[in-house]
């Protein structure tokens, strides 16, 4: 396996280590902790009163709009990174190109702003 892939394999080991250490501690905990479930204890917590309706209430669309905006700008960031590392080579040409790119995106942000999407009502 190439050193390149090996270093990514290290990432896998670290992910597994997290699950392993947490699993180990939870295992120890399972040996010493009590387990006496009662109906009251298993009730959904709503500040001490009996829960009303089901837990999955309807949520607002505004989270959705922000998520969409996030995707646009995140993809933008992905494009800026390789340019940022090579800026010295491309000099003024690269600068103008990225100026246009960032300008268009800023325009998008201003558009969303004017449309009132960024308002949290």
């Amino acid at each position: 396996m190439s050193p390149f892939l090996r270093s990514y394999l290290t990432v896998v080991w670290f992910g597994l280590a997290a699950f392993l250490i947490a699993g180990l501690l939870l295992g120890i905990s399972a040996l010493v902790r009590p387990n006496k479930p009662t109906a009251e204890k298993l009730l959904t917590y709503e500040s001490g009163v009996d829960p009303v309706g089901e837990g999955w209430s309807q949520s607002q669309i505004r989270y959705y709009v922000f998520a969409l905006l996030f995707v646009i700008f995140d993809v933008e960031a992905v494009f800026i990174f390789p340019w940022a590392t090579q800026l010295e080579r491309y000099a003024v040409f690269g600068l103008v190109e990225m100026g246009v790119f960032v300008g268009v995106l800023l325009l998008g942000l201003v558009y969303a702003w004017r449309k009132g999407v960024l308002r949290w009502v």
Binding site: L25, L26, I28, S29, A30, V32, R33, P34, N35, K36, P37, A39, K41, L42, L43, T44, Y45, P51, E54, G55
Partner: peptide, 10 residues
């Protein structure tokens, strides 16, 4: 470590 691990009924 000694606390009960509660999973609510719902």
């Amino acid at each position: 470590l000694q606390k009960e691990d509660i999973v609510p009924a719902n």
